[in-house]
């Protein structure tokens, strides 16, 4: 177990926190959960680094898909689910295409986002997107600039989606309500204030 020391200064306490990995601090079942949701055998990762090397997000951020795969196998559940980097995957699937052990790291990430969401850990931008879809059927709804561009190109101002056929919005909302997505987004955003 990590050794806890009582520092009065909380900044100092954080800086000097025992970061050693102790097996009892981890959750050995975590990898199984991720595999069940993600439907990919994450325990077979042999840490070659092809994933991080393929990742378009990695050069521009601190997102390291290989490190997430390692942490899954070490059962570092808390650390992963509270890590903002978890949400930096663009789901381009380059890592999945190239993984020599034929794993789907992207799907493991998606699985862990699901697990994080169960604990209401979701970044604002993702929640706002959920609200936008509920309101318009689009994550990025149409706007005037877009409409003008479309008309200039000889297209209808509105695309053949819920924008043109708002009667189908009801169906989308039904699906989202089934999973309580909008309700949860509203709740989390309200709590955050």
């Amino acid at each position: 177990m990590a050794v806890k020391k009582d520092y009065k200064d909380q900044t100092l306490a954080e800086r000097l926190r025992d970061r050693k990995y102790y097996v009892p601090d981890s959750n050995p079942e975590f990898v199984k959960e991720v595999e069940k949701i993600g439907q990919t055998p994450a325990h077979m990762c042999f840490q070659c680094g092809t994933c991080t090397g393929s990742c378009p997000s990695a050069p521009r951020s601190t997102y390291r898909i290989r490190l997430f795969m390692r942490k899954i196998n070490l059962g570092l559940e808390e650390e992963i689910l509270t890590d903002p980097d978890l949400w930096l995957c663009t789901t381009c699937y380059s890592c999945t295409d190239r993984c020599p052990r034929d794993l789907a790291p992207t799907d493991a990430i998606m699985a862990m986002r699901n697990l994080a969401a169960r604990r209401d850990i979701v970044p604002r931008n993702f929640l706002k997107t959920a609200q936008a879809i509920y309101a318009s059927g689009h994550g990025v709804p149409n706007n005037d600039a877009n409409r003008a561009a479309r008309v200039k190109l000889g297209l209808d101002a509105e695309p053949d989606t819920t924008h043109k056929y708002p009667e189908y919005l009801e169906g989308i909302r039904k699906i989202m309500d089934h999973y309580g997505l909008k309700e949860r987004a509203d709740k989390i955003l309200a709590e955050e204030g």
């Binding site: 050693k20 990995y21 097996v23 490190l67 070490l74």
Partner: peptide, 12 residues
Amino acid sequence: EDTLLGRPIDVE
């Protein structure tokens, strides 16, 4: 050290 994690490790 778990060199892939980049942290010291203690396994009992």
